[in-house]
Simulated assay, not measured.
Amino acid sequence: MFGISPLGWVHTLSSLPAIPLAIYMFARYGRIVPRSKSGVVYFISMLIGAITVFAIAHQSTSYGIGAATILLLLAGYGIGRISRFGRAGKYLETIFLSLTAFLLMLPTVSEILRRVPNGHPIVTDLNSPILLGSQAILFVILIVGLTAQIIHLRRQGRLPKFDSTAKM
């Protein structure tokens, strides 16, 4: 179905929970919160998805997105363990993890447009205006979302020093 291999289904189904979890955390906390139950499931789902992409990818871009996602995910979840970043740690964590959500949505939207409806996809060409437009919209959402997150963090003038054990 949809031309997806069994390993492709493992990749897709393991990555899928990250989408509603990211939406939930953005709506509830204004950012992805790594030290929450949702954040832990998001991490696991993203990591499995990013690792399995190397076994199913057909384009070099996919390898780059997978590698960047793993690096940003590890950096976003690991920065809390490094106390010398102080308040900047919260900003870096927010930026890194927001970028992982963007890197999840970019191929997700592209693959949906290139596979649905089954047998007669909306997009058949990687240079399709619909595909390029959807990618541009995702980029605008990233820029607006990151800007809003940074403004929100800055307005929290009482932002305590970054604490890796604190939950939001």
Results as ranks from 00 to 15, higher is better:
83 S>C: 02
59 Q>L: 11
35 R>Q: 14
52 T>L: 15
68 A>Q: 05
77 Y>K: 04
164 S>C: 03
9 W>Q: 13
127 N>P: 02
42 Y>I: 01
9 W>R: 07
124 T>R: 15
70 I>T: 03
133 G>A: 05
102 F>Q: 11
70 I>L: 14
39 G>R: 00
101 A>P: 02
91 Y>S: 05
25 M>P: 01
32 I>Y: 09
119 G>N: 03
6 P>Y: 07
98 S>N: 15
45 S>P: 09
99 L>W: 05
105 M>Q: 04
114 R>W: 05
109 V>K: 13
159 L>D: 11
108 T>G: 11
61 T>G: 08
35 R>F: 12
134 S>C: 09
92 L>G: 14
70 I>G: 11
166 A>T: 04
107 P>T: 02
72 L>A: 10
70 I>N: 13
79 I>Q: 09
63 Y>I: 06
126 L>M: 08
74 L>G: 09
153 L>G: 06
146 L>F: 04
60 S>M: 14
122 I>F: 15
139 F>T: 00
97 L>A: 07
53 V>H: 05
30 G>K: 04
109 V>F: 15
70 I>H: 13
88 A>N: 12
96 F>C: 08
20 P>E: 07
135 Q>N: 07
113 L>G: 09
73 L>N: 08
59 Q>F: 06
53 V>I: 15
57 A>N: 00
61 T>C: 00
103 L>I: 02
128 S>M: 03
64 G>M: 14
73 L>A: 07
105 M>V: 03
147 T>W: 08
117 P>H: 10
91 Y>D: 10
55 A>R: 03
76 G>I: 04
81 R>L: 12
2 F>Q: 06
141 I>W: 09
59 Q>N: 08
117 P>D: 08
11 H>W: 05
15 S>M: 02
164 S>W: 14
23 I>H: 01
89 G>Y: 07
14 S>Y: 00
89 G>L: 00
117 P>W: 12
74 L>C: 11
63 Y>Q: 01
87 R>Q: 11
60 S>H: 09
88 A>Q: 08
3 G>D: 15
86 G>I: 02
34 P>Q: 09
98 S>T: 10
58 H>T: 14
79 I>L: 12
60 S>I: 10
70 I>S: 10
164 S>G: 14
24 Y>L: 14
36 S>F: 01
106 L>S: 06
71 L>E: 00
76 G>A: 07
114 R>V: 02
134 S>H: 05
79 I>R: 04
67 A>H: 04
65 I>P: 06
143 I>F: 09
49 G>W: 08
59 Q>D: 10
35 R>P: 04
75 A>C: 06
103 L>N: 14
43 F>E: 01
97 L>H: 10
80 G>R: 12
9 W>C: 08
65 I>W: 11
64 G>W: 13
44 I>H: 09
157 G>I: 01
55 A>P: 02
26 F>I: 07
111 E>N: 11
20 P>R: 02
96 F>Y: 10
76 G>Q: 04
28 R>G: 02
5 S>P: 04
3 G>A: 06
34 P>D: 13
115 R>K: 11
138 L>F: 07
40 V>Y: 03
124 T>N: 13
52 T>M: 12
74 L>Y: 13
32 I>E: 08
50 A>Q: 09
79 I>S: 10
82 I>Q: 12
41 V>P: 13
161 K>W: 13
144 V>R: 03
78 G>D: 08
163 D>V: 02
2 F>S: 07
